[in-house]
Simulated scan of single mutants.
Amino acid sequence: MQGRRKGLERIRIVIVLILGMMALGLLTLGIGKVYLELVGQSSRVKAEGSQKSQQVSNTLDGTVLVLPKATFWTCQVGVFQNETNAQLTRERLQVLALDAEVLNANPWIVGIGLGHSANELKRMRQFLAEKGIQTIPKQIELPERSFRVAGNGSQLTAELLTNVNTILQKGMTAEVLAKEEQAWNSLAGEHPPKELEALHQMYNRIRAKINSEDQNALGLSLYFESQRVINKFSGK
């Protein structure tokens, strides 16, 4: 009888150990996931105070990523009072192989392409007009934002988001496009975060274009892919 009790006790101990190991594994998996957390004004000031020109700052809680303010222009296709009509317009344009996005909300604005001045968009607007799509230049202003990035893949995430912000600030250049490819090749490894794959594929689409006009036509969608990454990692 006593031997049977000892046997049952050993079984219970083994079960507890197994459950503990499973819990530890799940905890490790949870810690390893990349997340983004919006940092308040005090954290931003602290990051800037250490080095004004440095966009990424390492802290005990992860990496503080500072995305400086940026201003760019897009071709505004239309303004809508409800999201449904804006999304329908976006879908119609995508059928025509035009990468349109819905900007803002209430009212909802549909735009195509990205430039750094109204004049830079002239050729794109002319191209759209030839397809029967009338547009006006629309300026977009983004405030400075700060995020705490932590988990596996945090460095790659910071590199890609910083690269997009550089494009919004300074334009689509061969150098900045090559920098994203270098970062991906050196940091992605065999199992990069799935949330980054669509953003990287958008970069590949842009690099495949021969001229700057075709590249700029995809610029707005590149920005929106970066926003989707931020929303996914921040749980939105």
Rank of each mutant, 00 (worst) to 15 (best):
G3S: 12
G7R: 13
Q94R: 15
P107C: 02
L218V: 06
N204L: 15
Y203N: 10
L220T: 00
T71S: 15
L26Y: 11
E37H: 06
F147Q: 02
L96R: 15
I15H: 04
N231I: 01
T74P: 01
I13E: 15
N119Q: 15
V176M: 06
F224A: 00
R44L: 15
L96C: 09
L218S: 00
L24C: 09
V176S: 09
L27A: 12
L220Q: 03
S154C: 03
W108R: 00
R207V: 12
P137N: 09
F72Q: 00
E213N: 13
I13Y: 06
L29S: 10
A150E: 04
T162S: 15
R5Y: 12
E175D: 14
G78Y: 06
F224T: 08
V164Y: 05
I210H: 10
V66E: 00
G151E: 05
P107L: 05
L114H: 03
N231A: 15
Q54R: 14
I136N: 09
N104M: 05
V34R: 00
W73C: 00
L199A: 08
I11C: 05
W73M: 06
E159M: 02
E48V: 14
L98D: 02
Y203M: 08
D61M: 04
G171F: 01
W73Q: 01
Y35N: 11
F147H: 04
Q169A: 09
L142A: 12
Y203W: 08
M21G: 08
R207A: 14
S154F: 00
H200G: 04
A23F: 04
I136Y: 07
